[in-house]
Simulated assay, not measured.
Amino acid sequence: MSATTTGSATTTGEPGTPIRHYSSAGSRIFDTLNILFLGGVALVTVLPLLYVLAGSFASEAEIASRPFFLWPEKFVTSTYAYMFENDTMIRALLTTVGVTAVGTVVQLLLTFTMAYPLAKRYLPGRALVLNLVVFTLVFGGGIVPTYLVVRDLGLLDSYWALILPLAINPFYLIIVKSFFQELPQALEEAARIDGCTELGVFFKIVLPLSKPIIATFSLFYAVGIWNDYMSPLLYVNDSSKWTLQVLVRQLTSPDAANAISALDTVFFPVEGLKFAVVVVATLPILLFYPFLQKHFAKGVLIGGVKE
């Protein structure tokens, strides 16, 4: 049996023997300080979320009397009961869910169908189109020109105004194009020899091989639409078509009581309702992200593929 000692680590050369590592005093101090620092950052991040969650279950009197707490003295569920019984709240929640679902499908379809032909080096005019896509990464039209385009297309006060203006993210498009270029061309050529059309190759060969990147950008697009605040604020004037994010903003304004036009009850938990709506607006992302976190990492790796 042979042993090798390097610095503070000792390893054995015999097969099957576990490797033992010894850390120096400086390394242990660094690890301790690193853990304390990252733990402090995590604590600062989590504390506001816990406060909002606790405030959503607290009474109005407790919220007014206690500036900060992580556990309510008495759990109150009347705020959530009021929220889910109010037509404005339910309508905003359903609007957000519907726009997110439809918008994600539309954005994925347009992004993938545009990225696939751009991945073919023999496509005429490919370089020009790619340069135009990259141009939009650097220069944008701005709020006013975009608003004028949406208005002239007759999309104001429509749900499509929340989907179509941002239907294709140029950065995501370039990443998807790079992914398609890495797929085996032999599979596509074999499918064409068997009589498959270009659409058939795309839907029967390319998309089934692209499940990881589909999951990745489904999550990217869904999170972007769910958290979008500017689009409904600019393009939707009808309060019956507000999304949850706009409603959260209205409830945090000084005249929060006027944000709900359907208010017909004496009980109106203004402060608690703010916390509860923030919890409902944040909860879906917090629930889905841990299960799809690996796809975020895969998406970052895919973005490193070179042309």
Rank of each mutant, 00 (worst) to 15 (best):
D87K: 15
D87E: 15
T88V: 10
M89P: 07
M89R: 10
I90A: 09
I90Y: 11
R91E: 00
R91D: 00
R91N: 13
A92G: 03
L93N: 02
L93H: 04
L94A: 13
T95Q: 10
T96K: 10
V97E: 09
V97C: 09
V97D: 05
V99M: 07
T100V: 05
T100D: 04
V102F: 05
V102H: 01
V102K: 04
V102Y: 05
G103P: 01
G103M: 06
T104I: 06
L108Y: 03
L109T: 15
F112P: 06
M114D: 05
A115V: 00
Y116N: 09
P117W: 12
L118E: 10
A119Y: 08
A119S: 15
K120C: 05
R121I: 04
Y122M: 01
L123T: 05
P124F: 06
P124E: 08
A127W: 14
L128I: 15
V129R: 07
V129F: 05
L130F: 06
N131Q: 11
N131A: 12
N131E: 11
L132S: 03
L132T: 00
V133R: 00
V134W: 01
F135H: 13
F135T: 10
T136W: 11
L137I: 03
V138I: 06
V138C: 07
F139A: 05
F139R: 09
G140W: 08
G141N: 07
G141R: 03
G142A: 04
G142H: 02
G142T: 01
G142N: 01
I143T: 10
V144K: 04
T146Q: 09
Y147N: 02
Y147I: 01
V150N: 14
R151W: 14
R151F: 13
L153R: 03
G154Y: 08
G154W: 08
L155D: 04
L156V: 11
S158D: 09
Y159E: 14
W160L: 15
W160E: 13
W160Y: 11
A161K: 02
I163Q: 04
L164A: 05
P165Y: 15
P165L: 13
A167T: 07
F171V: 08
Y172M: 10
Y172D: 00
Y172Q: 14
Y172A: 00
L173H: 11
L173Q: 11
I175T: 10
I175A: 06
K177V: 03
S178G: 14
F179M: 00
F179K: 06
F180Y: 07
E182N: 00
P184W: 06
P184D: 02
P184K: 02
